[in-house]
Design a protein around this nucleic acid. Structure first.
Length: 580
RNA sequence: UGGGGCGUCGUCAAGCGGUAAGACACAGGAUUUUGAUUCCUGCAUUCGGAGGUUCGAAUCCUCCCGCCCCAGCCA
């Protein structure tokens, strides 16, 4: 972990936000302090896009020896729920960030916010308006035409004070009145056309319960909350650029503790997936996926269940950089970061996804000739042998384990071809291959069922090649992964692939679900995995040699019924070649 | 057609007036008991376009083109 942090530290790229902060520090702004915040609304699950913001905000704070607050922007009880608060906390924690002792909530500031509103009213900078929603829209004007002032705009300060207090006291129904900032109905920036800052919602709040029936709007709440927390740099996404004048206006009009600087950056988009809360919700609600933590979803909960590591995610967020350009990042980049990390940490193990039975016809003879071998164990029916396998060929410190060789083995169906081209380095009639950490075997006969499907291979092995080395220096083109019937246990394996077939699922269609990949999940039953995996912990990464990285599913896997998720495949040059 | 942004390799992305970093992808080659990993090598005479300023421009100026965002009592 220490090493990881050092490595991450060194790898951190510069970006325009850090440049701004650096200049600020140079100038002595905020006495050199850096305080950021990650401000999710608890109305859904976090996704990879949020991870970028989390890594940015917490990363910048760490780097400049400042701090980052985790703050819930919980100002709309109609959409928010405690379960989202819980899941967000757990996701941020999983990503590996520390928000200190305290979790912040905008709702903790409701009283302060109310006072700020009073202050605005007293300065004649806010008024209570009775326009209906429809009227408000009409008065607002359009993108090209200025708006009209509300008839209530010149209500007296005393009357505004009275009405606002009565709004708070619950004397009016939802929608009867709103509190608006008095700015400029002719502003070319629509956000400045007397924006609503408080609305009546007679609704219980997850945290303040029934204490309030008026709730502040985002624009009013956000900047003021930032100020109350002493935030120095308020980082948000591009769509809030138009709100910055309002953010600044509010902070200037009110006696705020400080005036944080809002800086906007582009949100992250990934190809072959969707990222918005609304679309993710549709996928979940219409059962296109199995819940918010479906391993195919770009939610934090999903990628975690899929087997992604926080280190890989953090590294990815660092590598893609931060800019104001809207982009769509290639998932290949994410997968590369994942493989990079998993290659380092995942113990290697063997598993056969689509087993093809292999019988070693000369194995029995071994029983007599080699019975003095101390690695040999005689069982009732079959003769088995224990061999050593490395847990990580590049990292001897990760140790070795015992694997079992016997007369009945399984190899991957894809590793045998009856009429193999010369470039096929695997098993074919008459050809010899190495079984990893086992023996060289040669295919002698092919057994088929009545439909012509290959159901079993009869092979011979070379006793001299124990462990996979040939004393005579004989070379073999291929090394196959395998498992023996005695040394393996059954398992179910979920092969996940990209959720959508189109790079941009929304392009050229009114319904992005039409681009769903029907093969985004292929569930394989009857797989065989090394016994070693029988008590694999959920989410712990293993490399199934030659296949990819897998982890036991945190929801479904049990000792009685193993279920593994494919996190990501290995790079596969052969797949590319063979397709041509 | 109001306002706010953005345009540098297939995809991200540095660059901030001194002559185009890096990563991924891609293409070759080496090593390999994972067709994995690792390791070399190659990969923008050019920065949306056109003018201009300058000894010198991706960087400064002008005009043009393209893309994104904004008319919730959502955030």
């Amino acid at each position: 972990m220490e090493d990881d942090n050092i490595k991450e530290e060194n790898n951190r790229k510069n970006n325009f936000i850090k440049s701004i902060i650096n200049e600020d520090i140079q100038k002595g702004k905020n006495s050199g302090k850096v305080i950021t915040r990650f401000p999710p609304e608890p109305n859904g699950f976090l996704h990879i896009g949020h991870a970028k913001s989390i890594c940015l905000n917490f990363g910048v704070a760490q780097e400049f020896k400042g701090k980052c607050n985790l703050r819930f922007d919980d100002t709309n009880p109609a959409k928010e729920d405690q379960k989202y608060i819980d899941s967000i906390i757990s996701d941020v924690k999983w990503l590996g960030f520390d928000w200190g002792e305290k979790i912040y909530y905008a709702s903790d500031y409701f009283e302060n916010l109310y006072d700020f509103a009073l202050e605005l009213i007293k300065k004649d900078k806010a008024y209570v308006c009775s326009l209906t929603g429809e009227e408000m829209r009409q008065y607002r004007g359009t993108l090209t035409e200025p708006g009209k002032e509300s008839p209530d705009r010149n209500r007296s300060i005393d009357e505004n004070l009275d009405l606002f207090e009565r709004m708070r006291n619950g004397e009016f129904t939802d929608g009867a009145y709103v509190l608006r900032a008095k700015i400029d109905m002719a502003s070319p920036n629509i956000n400045m056309r007397d924006p609503v800052i408080y609305r009546i919602k007679k609704m219980s709040h997850p945290r303040t319960k029934d204490k309030w029936c008026i709730y502040p709007m985002y624009d009013f709440t956000h900047g003021l909350s930032d100020s109350l927390e002493g935030i120095t740099h308020s980082l948000c996404t591009l769509e809030f650029q138009d709100h910055r004048p309002l953010y600044d206006w509010l902070l200037d009009e009110v006696t705020a503790p400080c005036h944080p600087q809002q800086i906007e950056f582009a949100r992250m988009n990934l190809n072959y997936t969707v990222m918005s809360k609304r679309k993710l919700q549709k996928l979940v609600e219409n059962n296109h996926v199995d819940g918010w933590d479906d391993p195919r979803l770009p939610t934090i909960a999903g990628i975690r269940r899929r087997g992604y590591t926080p280190e890989a995610m953090r590294n990815f967020c660092n590598i893609i950089g931060v800019s104001k350009k809207e982009s769509r990042i290639d998932v290949g980049m994410l997968e590369n970061c994942l493989r990079d990390d998993l290659n380092e940490r995942a113990p290697r193990v063997m598993a056969v996804l689509k087993p093809l039975k292999v019988t070693i016809e000369n194995w029995q003879e071994q029983e007599n000739s080699n019975s003095s071998d101390k690695n040999s164990v005689k069982e009732e029916k079959s003769f088995i042998e224990e061999l050593d396998a490395q847990n990580h060929p590049q990292k001897p410190e990760m140790g070795t384990r015992k694997i079992i060789f016997s007369k009945t083995l399984f190899i991957e169906q894809d590793d045998f071809m009856e009429n193999a081209p010369k470039k096929f380095f695997r098993l074919a009639p008459g050809r010899e291959v190495r079984l990893r950490y086992g023996y060289f075997i040669t295919c002698k006969h092919v057994i088929k069922d009545k439909d012509g499907n290959v159901v079993e291979l009869i092979c011979t092995y070379d006793p001299a090649t124990r462990g996979g080395d040939s004393p005579d220096g004989r070379k073999v083109k291929g090394t196959l992964h395998w498992v023996s019937s005695e040394g393996s246990v059954p398992a179910t394996v979920n092969l996940y692939d990209r959720l959508f077939m189109a790079e941009d699922p929304e392009a050229e269609t009114d319904d992005f679900t039409k681009n769903l990949n029907p093969e985004s999940l292929v569930r394989l039953e009857g797989c065989r995995v090394e016994k070693y995996l029988a008590d694999a912990a959920p989410e712990k990464a293993y490399q199934f040699e030659r296949l990819g990285y897998f982890c036991a599913d945190s929801r479904e896997s049990s000792k009685e019924h193993l279920v593994f998720n494919r996190t990501v495949t290995l790079r596969d040059t052969w797949a590319k070649v063979s397709q041509q």
